[in-house]
Design a protein around this nucleic acid. Structure first.
Lengths: 230, 230, 230, 230
DNA sequence: AATGAATGAGGTTTCATTCAT
DNA sequence: TATGAATGAAACCTCATTCAT
């Protein structure tokens, strides 16, 4: 249902549009400096939040002058984009357990996806919270997120539609609305636990998320077809 | 499942703690001024967002001086609280169709609740978006929200537990996690449509939300007990 | 030829468009503060030049905080406008010797005008230099100056045309070009002496300026008609 | 009155003192790079103005790095000097019609000088405006200009004195003041038309400038002596 | 109860110039 | 001779909040 490279409709991995970023520096030194700035920015953003993060703190943390910052980025918004992007690259290979994506395996696939998603969420919890914040503040990020969210939902919606035809999913549901609703639910569960600090066990989280997802779409947990399948 | 006065775990109606607000003015003139400030604040917040809203704009809109503002509120945060609260009062009588809250009626109750919730969301869309923003910015609001959210989830969780015992809800679910997850889903659907502008029809929204909710909790749509009820 | 209230085609007195300035403060205290800021700005501008004048210096000189500056002006450009305007008001009554403006009196009128102009230039030399600087820097000021310059030249051109018809001015000259050229000449003489520091005596300056002006337009110095008058 | 190589008291051709510029590069490559920098600087200065011209833009335009700039110039001011100087070299051969510089020919000489001057002004209008700007900004340029201006005026003043003795020029005029005044007038006419955009025809400009010049100095237009010549 | 002028810390941003490679 | 990353001082400007009137 959910692909590794598109972990979440609202999530980080697919968020960033590469066109937003200026040319990479050419020299080794330049690359090093840029990287240290991105790393420092992430630390400061996570520590102080997007709004309270000051450029001086970022450059102090990176061990360079304020002017150097502007060699690589035009604004705070732009470093934030770079931070997000660096994490995206960092999450390209999450090592999903190989489960064959056949209709009967749907429960296992959903469980594996959710597990991978929550693991990623946990690893990048602070950043996810940050993203949540920035999306409510900066229209550019909100817009981008919405776009990606729609694209992702459309893809999932198609899978749902196929499973409906094959008799695995509740046929009364609107595929695209259901897709969005269910991924939103998973995403908010991650947010509640890892950003807001709801004290739930990881395994219980995966179990409940998977059960609610399958239930919501009306997918039998044993891999069989629905009773109402023609 | 959901009460009118507690429309949403993350929503507006139950958000505001009355103890946060200072005493109401006593004179008629004072009451009028305060009201005009709250109304002006709402307009400016909705127009410019919380961060970009300037006190001078609010007072200009209200037709008074900045000094006067501080006669009634201690800070920007406090007017925002007042705006939220005024809306809460405004939503005290959403006119729920009177459906008896018996186990067999659960599907109707859920549908009615969802309908009322989305109607309220639509009416106050801008403010809901604002709330979303402020919750990511201001720890006090985040904290309050989390507290209320937990209280609400606990109450709903108890209802779910009861319905589980009576054989109406999937017995494998953790009541409190399920309660939070499901209300989050509904809330995000409202956000997607009325804040982000997802173009979905109102009736379809209610239908899908209700179906997913009932499915997720495993509540049979015909009001009967589950097959696995002992 | 030249009017007191329009001392110079390029000069200060007629330069400023009142529409550029925001509302005056209402309270006495506000008026006082604004005035002290304008006076301080003039001192700092004259001391450091427009480009090197810093807002902090102006406010320090005025004895207030930087924030207060922005209560009255939006920018450095705007105080500069106010400084110019204050000087304009200051020069509304230059006390021209009353010489009747009849054709035979033209030589006396020209001399009196030039004298008044150079006196004003001397009094406001620093500011005139500043104006010269700002006009080359800021397109808004350049534009305004050009507009006024044209209006002024047109008026003078009409007088020249009349004197041409009456046989007092060289009939081969184009009135509007001649008007602009001759006032430019006077203005540059003032600039050379009082801004650049050309060490010329005041009376010699008036004499030469008047002689060149009358000569250039072909006006007989004795108040008589030209020989070629029909 | 005016020499080709000294077109204007305030003008470009005689402005630059060669001693200000560092040694030319020796290698062919060095010469090429330097030239491309000067050409690029001129383009950028004319496009953006002196103040807004950034070194990075100049070097980008020249296709080299910022560091390279400092191989050839010590500062922004110095390239500007070089740009001015390059134009000066470019104007060494203005092709004046050969008119014998005898007293009776003065009207023709003045006309030819003015024509050549306005042609040069038109060709280098943007640069002349730039020069005007820089002279108000940079004391070094202002100083240099004043010095050259005085030297030029002195030379012209001597010619005027001679013509006065020969009975060709108004004997009441102070030669040096008159010289400066009259050249200033011509220079401002060029500025008005080609920098500020006063819409005057070239031939009319030459005619009027010449008439005013001759009139101002009291030089009879037919090449004859003045009536008051002893 | 109302006014509105005054505050001022502190963030963002710029760009000529230097210098190690 | 060429490179281009690094520098860092310094200027502008904002706006929630205070307080004298």
């Amino acid at each position: 249902m959910s692909e590794t490279s598109d972990l979440d409709a609202e999530g980080m991995p697919t968020l960033v549009d590469r066109t937003r970023v200026r040319d990479q520096p050419t020299t080794a030194r330049g690359i090093r400096t840029r990287e240290s700035l991105v790393a420092a920015a992430r630390r400061v953003f996570e520590r102080d939040g997007y709004l309270d993060a000051r450029l001086v703190d970022i450059t102090a943390e990176a061990g360079c002058s304020v002017g150097t910052f502007y060699t690589y980025f035009d604004s705070k918004e732009e470093v934030f984009t770079a931070v997000i992007q660096a994490t995206q690259d960092d999450m390209m290979h999450p090592g999903l357990p190989h489960v064959e994506d056949s209709p009967e395996n749907t429960p296992q696939v959903v469980r594996a996806s959710n597990r991978a998603y929550f693991e990623a969420y946990k690893r990048n919890a602070r950043l996810m919270g940050l993203l949540e914040q920035v999306a409510t503040i900066d229209p550019a990020f909100r817009e981008l997120r919405l776009k990606r969210s729609r694209a992702f939902a459309d893809r999932n919606a198609r899978k749902i539609a196929v499973l409906q035809e094959q008799g695995y999913v509740d046929p009364t549901l609107d595929p695209s609305m259901a897709a969005l609703a269910v991924t939103s639910m998973i995403s908010r569960m991650g947010y509640s636990v890892y950003v807001l600090g709801q004290p739930w066990e990881f395994e219980a989280l995966v179990d409940t998320a998977t059960a609610l997802w399958l239930n919501a779409l009306g997918i039998p947990r044993d891999g069989s077809r629905r009773d109402d399948a023609h």
